[in-house]
């Protein structure tokens, strides 16, 4: 019986089709194991071997990974939410209501996206605390720290743009306050220092650029939608990629 099984496996795994799917042998040899990681498009980023101290959870807290996991989770739930959401002022609020009341599993989908967003912000902050505590911002890792701060900012912006999409009082006023702050920016805001001198008005300053108008309205909604679902995630994707590559290159910072 075993002989037969073994024979089948052998034939199977030596066939051309198998070999076209899997470019390595599954024989448990060191070479094959290495190729499992290095030859995989998604995993080749990952180091083949890592130092023991790199996986000390009491040391790393795993928060970076957690944040990345949350980002993926939010992308997935966000994608699913996009099927039921129309980014225009007539439909936006009611679509969110419908998700809650009408869509199968819509309640948990929307809620987990919302809670996930909060959690991502929390985990990224804990991650930064950890990186600070372990001194992993010091040379040669200064650039990575700066990247991280930018990623933090992008995380906040994701939350901010996403907040408007429900098109309710909370979101609308939050964005109103935020963009009203923007108009006080120097040079580019029409209420900021030197803004007037540079010809900034309510209709052509940075606030206008953010809102697509002078009030929070339909244009603001669609812009928030684009930023939240496409623009910022793309930027995050690129920056996160560089961030991980630097972690690889710089290596995990060692024990204290």
């Amino acid at each position: 019986m075993n002989e037969l099984l073994r024979k089948i496996i052998e034939v199977l795994t030596l066939s051309q089709i198998w070999r076209s799917f899997f470019r390595r042998k599954h024989d448990g040899s060191k070479r094959s194991n290495v190729l499992a990681v290095v030859g995989n498009f998604f995993m080749h980023f990952h180091p083949i071997k890592i130092k023991r101290h790199a996986i000390a959870v009491r040391y790393t807290w795993c928060m970076g990974g957690f944040t990345f996991f949350m980002f993926l989770f939010l992308t997935l739930t966000g994608l699913l939410l996009m099927f039921y959401y129309h980014p225009n002022v007539r439909d936006a609020f009611w679509d969110v209501k419908d998700l809650k009341y009408n869509v199968a599993f819509g309640k948990i989908l929307r809620n987990s996206h919302r809670w996930g967003a909060h959690l991502m912000v929390i985990t990224v902050m804990i991650h930064m605390v950890r990186v600070f505590m372990t001194g992993s911002y010091k040379a040669p890792r200064e650039f990575n720290w700066v990247l991280g701060v930018l990623l933090l900012l992008l995380t906040f912006l994701l939350s901010f743009t996403g907040y408007l999409l429900t098109w309710d009082q909370l979101g609308m006023w939050a964005i109103t306050v935020g963009t009203n702050m923007a108009r006080a920016t120097p040079f580019i805001g029409h209420e900021g220092p030197f803004g007037e001198q540079l010809g900034m008005t309510a209709y052509n300053d940075i606030r206008f650029a953010l809102l697509g108008g002078s009030m929070v309205g339909p244009n603001a909604l669609i812009r928030a939608y684009i930023w939240h679902c496409v623009g910022i995630p793309l930027v995050v994707a690129f920056m996160a990629a560089v961030h991980f590559w630097r972690v690889r290159k710089d290596g995990f910072s060692g024990p204290l």
Binding site: W94, K97, D98, K100, Y101, N102, K107, Q169
Partner: peptide
């Protein structure tokens, strides 16, 4: 009332906060 709500009596009747 809240015509779209289906998950509970209070929600459907709009007798909820805000």
């Amino acid at each position: 009332g809240q015509g779209r709500a289906l998950t509970s009596v209070e929600e459907a009747h709009g007798e909820v906060e805000y």
